[in-house]
C-alpha cells in the first residue's frame, strides 16, 4: 500500500470475504496473498452480527492471476464466501478521508 501505486478505477477490484471470526483468520487470508506474491492494496476487517463471523474487505489490483487467487481463497476452511465487486464499490472511497 502506497500512494505512488494508487489504483486507477479500471485496475481496481474489491473483494468481500465473509469469514469465521477467530484470531487466526486474518493470517490465513493475508498469508495466502503474500505467499502467492499477490499484493493487497487495502484491507478492512470488522466483526459482523453476533461476532461469530467477520467481514474482510480487500482492495486488490486486477490481474490475470486474480481468478486463481480467488479460487485459492475459497478453499480456506474459515472463508464462508467471496464476492467480487468492481471499482464502483464505495467501501474504500469512503475511508479516504482517514488516509488524507
Amino acid at each position: 500500500m502506497n500512494a505512488a501505486m494508487k489504483l486507477e478505477p479500471a485496475d481496481k477490484v474489491i473483494l468481500e470475504l465473509n469469514v469465521r471470526n477467530h484470531p487466526g483468520v486474518m493470517t490465513h487470508v493475508c498469508g495466502l496473498f503474500a505467499r502467492r506474491a499477490f499484493n493487497v492494496e487495502g484491507i478492512l476487517c470488522m466483526p459482523v452480527g453476533d461476532g461469530t463471523e467477520s467481514r474482510i474487505w480487500l482492495l486488490v489490483r486486477e490481474d490475470e492471476r486474480l481468478s486463481q487467487m480467488i479460487a485459492q481463497v475459497e478453499k480456506l476452511e474459515d472463508v464462508i464466501s467471496v464476492i467480487r465487486h468492481g471499482a464502483s464499490h464505495l467501501v474504500f472511497d469512503r475511508l479516504e478521508e482517514f488516509f488524507a
Binding site: S67, Q68, A71, Q72, E74, K75
Partner: peptide, 8 residues
Amino acid sequence: VDAAELGK
C-alpha cells in the same frame, strides 16, 4: 476435485 486446479 479441487476447483483451483482447473485453469491454474
